[in-house]
C-alpha cells in the first residue's frame, strides 16, 4: 500500500477502487496537523502540481481530509488546497456538512473562494501558519466572502 506520508497519491485509488487511507500523525496535535499541511504544500509544489499551498481537515484529533493546490496539473483554477481538502473530507465522511471539523492551512488567510467554501461546508474554525508549524494563528469561523 502506498502511504501518503512521503508520496502524494490521489485520494481515490483506481487500482483497489477505494479511497486511499490517510496516514495519521503519531502524536496528534495542532502542531502535527499544521506540519502536515506545510508538508503537503511543499510536496505539491515540488511536483509542479500548483502553488505551494496545503490543507488538512481535522475532527477529533483525526485527519479527515487532505488537499494541496493542484491548479496546474488539473488546469483548474478552482483546485485550491482548501477546496480539494473539503471535497476529500466530504467524500470520505460521506456528508457535505462539516460542522465540528477544523481546517489547518498555510498562508496568511484563505482566499475568499476557499473561505466561502469553508463557510458553505460549515467548518468550525480555520487555523493558519505562514511557514512554521509552531506559529499557528486562529482565524476563527470562516466568513461569507472573506468579510
Amino acid at each position: 500500500m502506498l502511504t501518503r506520508r512521503r508520496f502524494l497519491v490521489p485520494a481515490f485509488d483506481p487500482v483497489t477502487d477505494r479511497l486511499t487511507p490517510i496516514e495519521q500523525p503519531e502524536t496528534p496535535s495542532p502542531r502535527a496537523f499544521m506540519a502536515r499541511a506545510l508538508e503537503l504544500a511543499r510536496l505539491g509544489s515540488r511536483r509542479n502540481e500548483g502553488t505551494p499551498y496545503g490543507c488538512v481537515i481535522v475532527k477529533d484529533n483525526r485527519i479527515a481530509g487532505e488537499g494541496w493546490n493542484r491548479a496546474s496539473v488539473r488546469h483548474d483554477a478552482t483546485a485550491h488546497a482548501e477546496i480539494e481538502a473539503i471535497q476529500e473530507a466530504c467524500r470520505r465522511e460521506q456528508r457535505r456538512d462539516l460542522a465540528g471539523y477544523v481546517m489547518y492551512t498555510n498562508g496568511g488567510r484563505p482566499c475568499p473562494m476557499c473561505e466561502t467554501a469553508a463557510y458553505w461546508a460549515r467548518i468550525d474554525r480555520i487555523f493558519t501558519a505562514v511557514s512554521s508549524p509552531d506559529e499557528i494563528t486562529d482565524r476563527g469561523a470562516p466568513k461569507y466572502g472573506g468579510c
Binding site: 485550491h80 473562494m113 466561502t116 466572502g145
Partner: peptide, 9 residues
C-alpha cells in the same frame, strides 16, 4: 462569493 472568486481566478 465563492463562485465569483473562482471566476476571478
Amino acid at each position: 462569493p465563492m463562485c465569483e472568486a473562482g471566476a476571478y481566478w
